[in-house]
Each structure stands twice: as C-alpha cells, then as structure tokens.
Design a protein around this nucleic acid. Structure first.
Lengths: 196, 196
DNA sequence: ACCATATTATAGAGACCGGTCTAGCGAGTT
DNA sequence: AACTCGCTAGACCGGTCTCTATAATATGGT
C-alpha cells in the first residue's frame, strides 16, 4: 500500500523540474527519466499527466519558465526609475543567474528553441509565445515613456536581441563581461532614443 | 573488391557533413549514424578518423563551420564602403541563409554552444574560438576606421550579440524581420559612434 | 455501512536507437 | 609470398521514449 500524490501536485512538480532541466540542457540532452527522477515523480505517470509525451512536457515547461522569468522582468521594469536602469537591471538579473548556477542557467527559452524548435511545432510555438510576452512587456514600458508604439516595439526587439546574444556569448566564454558591456551600450542608445 | 576513398577525403567529407548537421540540429539531436550516412562514409571509420568520438567530431565541425562563415564575413567586410553597410551585409547574409534553408541554417556555433557547451570543454573551446575569430575580424575593421581599439572591440561585441540574438528570434518566429530591424538600428548606432 | 464503478495514478516491460569498440578485410610494399 | 598499414563491417551495451496492465483513491447508489 503506497501513498499516491494528491491531484495535480505531481504534475506541477514535474513541470517545474522539467522547466529547469530543459532550460539548462536543451530538449534532446534531457531525458524524461532524469526529469521524473529529479522531481521525485513516479516513472510511469508521465503519459497520464502529459499524453503528448516529451514534446508536450517540453512545450509546457518552456511556457512555465518563460512565464516565471517574464514576471521577474515585469517587476524589474516597474521599479526602474529610467529606461537605462531597466536594461541594466535585466542584464544584472541574467548575470546573477549565470553566476549563481556556474553558467548553467541562461535563457529558459533559447536552448530549447534552437535545439527543438525546428523539429516540433508546439515547442516552437511555446518559445515564440514566451518571447512575444517578454517583448510586449518591454515595449509596453517604452511606450509608457512617450515614444511611439512602433519605436517602442523596435527598441524592445533591439534590447531583447542584444541581451540574448550577449547571454549566448557570456555562456560560451564563461564570462559575464559581454552582458555588462552590451547592456551599457544599449542602455545609452535607448536613453537617447527615448529623450528624442 | 570495393574501392576505398583516398586518404583524407573521407575525413573531410564527414567533417563537412557534420558541420552542417550539428549546426542545424545541435549536438545531442544529431547522431553519428546520421552524419556518416549523409556523408556516404563507412560506419566504422569514425573512430579511426576521430579517436575522440562524437565529441571530437563536433568540436572540429564547429571549427570548420565557424571558419567558413568567418571567411565569408571577412569578404563582406572588406567590400563594405562604410560600417553601416558592413552590418547590413552581415545581416543580409544571415537572412539569405535562413531563407535558403527554410530557417534551418542559422549560426553554425550557437546551437552547439548552448546544447553541448556546458558538458564538453573541447566543444565549448571550439565555440569560443569561433566567436573570438569573428569578433577579431569585426573589431579589426572598426579599428581600421579610426576608433580606439577598446571601442572597436566593444562595438564588435555589440554587433555580434545583436545579430546573434536577432537570429535566434528570427529562427523562432520563422520571420526575418527581427534581423532587418535590429541590423538597421545597430548600423545607425555604429555609424554615429565611428563618426565621433 | 457497504459495495460497484469511474477516475486517477503507477510500475514495469517492450521496441528501438544511441555511441563505442574490436576483430578482420583491403591494398600497397619489400 | 609475406608483411605492414590503412581502413571498415558488424555486434555490443546502455539508455531512450513509449505504452499497457494494474493498483489506489474517490464517487454514488442501495
């Protein structure tokens, strides 16, 4: 007579673990066995909670990870006194994640997007939705500062692209300097653009 | 009586195929069987040419891919009449690669770097070397235009980061617009910076 | 209070493919 | 002819994702 976990609890735990592992290792490097083991979840329950199998698990995991980081970004932006601070705050967040995880935790979307986005439409859709959510947050912030909607969306795209690229270089070099340097330049550019 | 490929030919062919496949699919999603099959290379000869196995193959494949794209970049830069053209030429190159491959061919380093860089030191070293080579090319170009060495290297970092990030978003959205928008902004910024 | 039934959850095995290695075949040379 | 060297086919072990048969809990009628 073995206790069963209560409804929904196991699913959430698996999803949380999956989000972390997929984010660090990518789709193909992460096995469902590893996810279930680290989540202390029973081996066989995967296909009950996620009938779509590994693909569904990954898609939902990306959504969870993107949503969580999105909320942190929203908070950061809210508290930023000016656009330059908003950019550097986001960069500092990424730096802290890198340093706090021996350069394992980067962007919760990027690795999966590159590694599985080409093969799986649902996964790519989840990645795209995550990025769109972030872009909307950042663009909304800029728009609130008085720039046109189109400019706001372009600056958001520029900011996110630069940070993602810098994050990629930082991970590859195991050095957070690219993140700092790029963020400073982009912050200056955006300050100038918002002032105009 | 079966003909054997002449010395070195098979190795180069395998390396070329591996470069293409790892670049598109990443490390863990690409099997050595697939590489050898697509290269029309005998199954067993992998460990003769690459005693380090899949890891060595991937590291060398990244070097090859990075070197080839690096040469293209060098040519592009050489022929650019001004720094803005250099940036947009690089972006156009990436756009052409995406469009010519149904969004499969992006950066020959990025996917492998994120997907295997954390696990394998040799692979990460190859990725890093590739990026460093590109950065040196771009920074050298800027330095030749009269800006200080430090500024040149910072602008190169900014340009590469932005393009890599925009490429990631473009692949995820299957839309080259991010690449165009980001390149235009960065080109303007760099023009302004070089003029100063 | 009791049992039948539907729902929720799980263990373990099945089918398959991964990278790796070793024993042996081809060709060129003495 | 015999020997060496370059090269390769095929099998090995381990791990992958997936599925089905079964256990545990909740529900509702009598």
């Amino acid at each position: 007579m073995v206790m069963m976990a209560s409804r929904g609890e196991t699913r959430a735990q698996v999803l949380q673990t999956a989000s972390s592992l997929f984010s660090r290792q990518g789709f193909h490097a992460t096995g469902v066995t590893q996810v279930l083991a680290e989540a202390d979840a029973p081996k066989g329950s995967l296909y009950f909670h996620f009938p779509g199998g590994k693909e569904q698990l990954a898609a939902e995991a990306v959504s969870v990870g993107a949503g969580e980081l999105g909320q942190v970004i929203d908070t950061l932006i809210e508290r930023a006194p000016d656009p330059a601070s908003a950019i550097t705050a986001m960069a500092d967040l990424l730096v802290a994640r890198l340093e706090g995880s021996d350069f394992a935790d980067g962007c919760p979307i990027a690795t999966v997007a590159l590694d599985a986005g080409a093969d799986s439409t649902p996964i790519r859709a989840a990645c795209r939705a995550g990025y769109d959510q972030w872009l909307a947050s950042i663009a909304g912030y800029f728009a609130g500062l008085g720039v046109s909607a189109e400019t706001a969306s372009e600056l958001a795209l520029l900011a996110l692209s630069s940070l993602e690229g810098a994050l990629l270089l930082a991970k590859t070099r195991r050095d957070t300097a690219p993140l700092h340097r790029v963020a400073d330049r982009i912050a200056a550019l955006i300050t100038q653009e918002v002032a105009a």
